[in-house]
Design a binder for these strands. Sequence first.
DNA 1: CGCTTAATGGCAGATGGTGCCAATAAATGT
DNA 2: ACATTTATTGGCACCATCTGCCATTAAGCG
Lengths: 212, 212
Amino acid sequence: MTDVVTEKPRRGRPPVSDEQRRRQRLDLSRHAVRLFAEQGVAATSGEQIAQAAGVSERTFWRYFPHKESCVEPLLTKMVEAFCVVVRAWPRELELIDHLREAYSPLLDAASDEDIEAVLAVVRLTHGEQALRAAYLMLRERAEDALADVLAERAGLPRDAIEVRVQAAAMSAVLKVATDDVARSAADGVTRETLEGHREQIAAALRGLSQML
Amino acid sequence: MTDVVTEKPRRGRPPVSDEQRRRQRLDLSRHAVRLFAEQGVAATSGEQIAQAAGVSERTFWRYFPHKESCVEPLLTKMVEAFCVVVRAWPRELELIDHLREAYSPLLDAASDEDIEAVLAVVRLTHGEQALRAAYLMLRERAEDALADVLAERAGLPRDAIEVRVQAAAMSAVLKVATDDVARSAADGVTRETLEGHREQIAAALRGLSQML
DNA sequence: CGCTTAATGGCAGATGGTGCCAATAAATGT
DNA sequence: ACATTTATTGGCACCATCTGCCATTAAGCG
């Protein structure tokens, strides 16, 4: 009865906090992305990234299983932002209207630098196949999260076919819109660009409804 | 004026035909997939695949840029089959109805072995991340082809936002349906399973229209 | 059979990535 | 202060992935 949350009279050095680890990954991620953009993925070695971030190559490979997954921390920020918005989607509102309401505050929350970096990565994924593959894998993970939210809203199991189709379609729309905004924001991202992004999504969702 | 199709009084050994090359790739692909399924991707080395197919490791790497791209020839068969159907989609018919008409004959055309192999690969992509990434990349290439067809139908440029959204959404639907049929056909594929697949797609497309 | 060109195979080498172990860092107990 | 315990780090050896280079072989043609 005493092990509801198993007792842990911890003894040695405690593991670093998840927060700390996240920061470290993000730091490595920034260096990696900068180098990727400057000289290409293929021409950037793991050793180089490690050196730029001031850790040994060995620990670098402990933080990232593959070179391309260096983009993950940055991109995750983006998809998580979207998941937060979707999760807050009130039942009585149209998705488009909810986006208009909830998206702007979210943009204020993220730092301009991060937004710029994320868009840079998305642009990179077009020339660099390895990065594109990593990007698509990440989007599929996001799709699962989206499916969870949609399932809860609809009161259906998360692997119901309707739920998965809707999640996949929404995710696909978001992908197109994101690629588009990244392309059009090639030099400098403005508030107008981002609001354009929101409208892009809205228009795309509207377009979906005309499909059949 | 004499170089409309540059004159080629060919001299030495002629390059192998594209057909021949395609066959070779497909053969390597089959061996690779079998090994992947038997012992996992990570545990299967390029040397092993080459040996199984009876070529040197060096030439194996000439046929495939990465180990995971061994699944490409098989999967391409699948997406090309779908593209053919879409291309033949008459303007006056609903897509669902067209699928019902055109899909069955197509199933007869492909060999049972190949269909089985394709589904096996799709199943593999769920446990093997590297394969999943390759799969998603291929699907995106197929999405482009789909966009071309849709653009022509709609009389819009191929990079119009509506076209790309529609292509992305259709592709996403097809992905869900394909994953589902692969899972449900885990042991032995029957004609019922495949017709189920077609209905799966139809239902999914119908579901899409209810999205908003 | 010589000539020309394409495909192949073998070998060296750089990079990606992992397992193992010693060294160090951060906590607690005495 | 010091020993003890545990987590992280770095160094090293090692296998796999993939490429460049060159010699060899194969396939056509006069």
